[in-house]
């Protein structure tokens, strides 16, 4: 089993290298995780400023959001990648004047299309799910975590996720990780502030 996983990882790495998709997968991951994190932050804050926050409602809205962004991310990335990569395959076939249906480029292209779609679908759903964990704990045992604390914990998890994404971005860019993480957290805080300000007027 372990050998099979190792073999799969080796093959996946080779396919990603042939298809030049490592950079793209990182970009998809950060972009969509960021999207998911900010979207769920909007849902949580939106519920909070109504003053009638309900954990059950937040969880259901959040899971609905995770499902919708997950499916939309998967399908969107799959279709766009498939179209782009089919075009590239045709271009390669024309340039070397040979069909490459049985070649490594073709297999890598098919594998990477699916893998990128999975990254695109899972990344926002993952950040949304992480933010919802405190509400789930509250639903299971309200005495263990009150709704107020669940709300604070949820926002803290969300901002931490944003900070981690920033650190990851800084690592990719080989730049100041703190600067990147402060930037992503500032985006989250800006959403919180805007929702507070606009919500106060409602």
């Amino acid at each position: 089993m372990l050998r099979r996983i190792r073999r799969f990882r080796k093959r996946a790495r080779k396919y990603f290298s042939v298809a030049g998709a490592a950079e793209l997968s990182r970009r998809y991951f950060v972009m969509n995780s960021f999207d998911g994190a900010l979207a769920i932050l909007g849902v949580v804050m939106g519920a909070y400023i109504t003053g009638k926050a309900d954990a059950h409602l937040i969880i259901n809205s959040g899971l609905g959001l995770a499902l919708a962004t997950g499916i939309s991310g998967f399908v969107g990335a799959f279709l766009s990648e498939k179209a782009e990569r089919s075009r590239k395959i045709k271009e390669i076939e024309e340039s070397i004047m040979m069909e490459i249906k049985d070649s490594i480029i073709y297999r890598a292209s098919k594998f990477v299309t699916f893998a990128l779609a999975v990254v695109d679908g899972i990344s926002p759903a993952l950040t949304i799910f992480l933010t919802l964990i405190p509400f789930m704990i509250h639903e299971i045992s309200p005495s263990a975590l009150s709704l107020q604390y669940a709300m604070v914990a949820s926002i803290a998890i969300n901002l931490s996720t944003l900070a981690l994404l920033g650190i990851y971005l800084g690592k990719i860019a080989s730049a100041n990780r703190l600067k990147y993480s402060l930037l992503t957290v500032a985006m989250g805080l800006a959403i919180v502030a805007i929702l507070f300000l606009t919500g106060a007027g409602v």
Binding site: I92, I96, M97, M98, I100, D102, S103, I104, I105, Y106
Partner: peptide, 13 residues
């Protein structure tokens, strides 16, 4: 034949 097969497998004409 084996060389030709490996070349085709690697999209090389």
């Amino acid at each position: 034949e084996e060389v030709a097969k490996v070349l085709a497998e690697n999209s090389t004409a």
